[in-house]
Design a protein around this nucleic acid. Structure first.
Lengths: 197, 197
DNA sequence: CATATTCTTCAAAAGATTTTGAAACATTCG
DNA sequence: CGAATGTTTCAAAATCTTTTGAAGAATATG
């Protein structure tokens, strides 16, 4: 059997815009640009697309497509689908934006923030140890002051990190149940094109 | 006059931890790591430090210090101070964390999000034009369906972006007046080391 | 089982970003 | 002014990231 021709021609203007913007946005959020571009193309496609389609449409190498798609799969941002009697794999974008975002947030940002919190706590402990050592000998006013200032400042960082964590948790648990509450709370009513789910 | 010796010895364990963590965090947020490290060292220092101090403490070249410090100044995250009778410039960290963050957010994330919103709106318009063109000739059910799907999906992206913008605005206006309200709303009460301002 | 097709891997190439350090510039002091 | 000290700039070097493409693994087909 001859390999089936790519489903896709070229991108329409809107498709180019969207995939590029999503590419940039996602790059801003610390992912590779092509992950965003691929997701964008899939998101706007009525049909599932094959790796080869993506390769043509976005002018990427086979390796790049394979690796990118797998990364997207790992993040649960794209799904693999089977197409009746086709040999190759096809892919579709996860379209539930909110679900997508919360998944990424809970893996990435949460990890990062937890690490920071731990580190700050460790730093505070280190300072306490230093302080304890110092007590035995006198005449260290200077150093003592320094230590106290640092404890205070690191304390602030710690508080901030905890605040971030709480905020994130609030967002995430919101996401789990249903997007609406917080959304509604923040938006007031604005004309929406369709509810964000 | 002989150049005054660097104020600083080596970093204490806590200082290393903090400057490294802040370095990583800030890198995660899309800045250069050294910006975070410099800020971290300044933040924990009771005295203002000179460029040379930073150079020694963090093992950076003079050029790197100069450029980094200037970038931090541009972001309003570090301030230059004059020290009585000293020739060189000295620097201190902005210690009002919340102020700092909101400044960065309102310049960076806001720009990015506004650009995305514009782009999505443009994409929607492009689709409308396409649709209008199509109307004149019949027999385009397929294409029409495609366009409508895309309008719907881009609409969701747009809504999401707008939601993000609102959230950001809420955070920022919160920041301007006083950190507490939204913070309190989200946090319930938690034990704090010192209020985050 | 031999072949055809698709997917994955990975070393090397390309590309992007960051850092260095020496030269140019600026400022202060005597 | 001229020397001394400090700062900025910027091309080149070093480093880090991403992409490529060919080789190999995996899987389906006849």
């Amino acid at each position: 059997m001859v390999s089936s021709p790519p489903v896709t021609q070229a991108l329409s203007p809107s498709e180019v815009i969207v995939s590029d913007v999503v590419g940039r946005l996602i790059e801003f959020w610390g992912f590779k640009r092509n992950l965003g571009r691929i997701w964008g193309v899939l998101y706007l496609s009525p049909e599932a697309l094959s790796a080869e389609d993506l390769r043509h449409v976005l002018k990427l190498s086979s390796g790049a497509v394979s690796m990118s798609v797998n990364e997207l799969l790992r993040w649960g941002i794209v799904r693999r689908v089977w197409v009746q009697g086709e040999r190759r794999d096809y892919y579709v974008a996860e379209v539930q934006l909110w679900k997508m975002i919360s998944r990424v947030f809970s893996e990435r940002e949460k990890t990062e923030i937890d690490a920071a919190i731990e580190a700050f706590e460790e730093a505070l402990q280190a300072l306490d140890r230093q302080k304890a050592q110092l007590k035995r000998g006198p005449e260290h006013t200077r150093t003592l002051e320094r230590i106290d200032l640092q404890k205070q400042r690191i304390g602030q960082l710690l508080d901030l990190a905890k605040l971030g964590k709480k905020l994130l948790d609030a967002l995430l648990s919101t996401a789990k149940v249903d997007a609406e509450p917080l959304v509604r709370f923040l938006l007031g009513r604005s004309q929406s094109h369709s509810s964000v789910r």
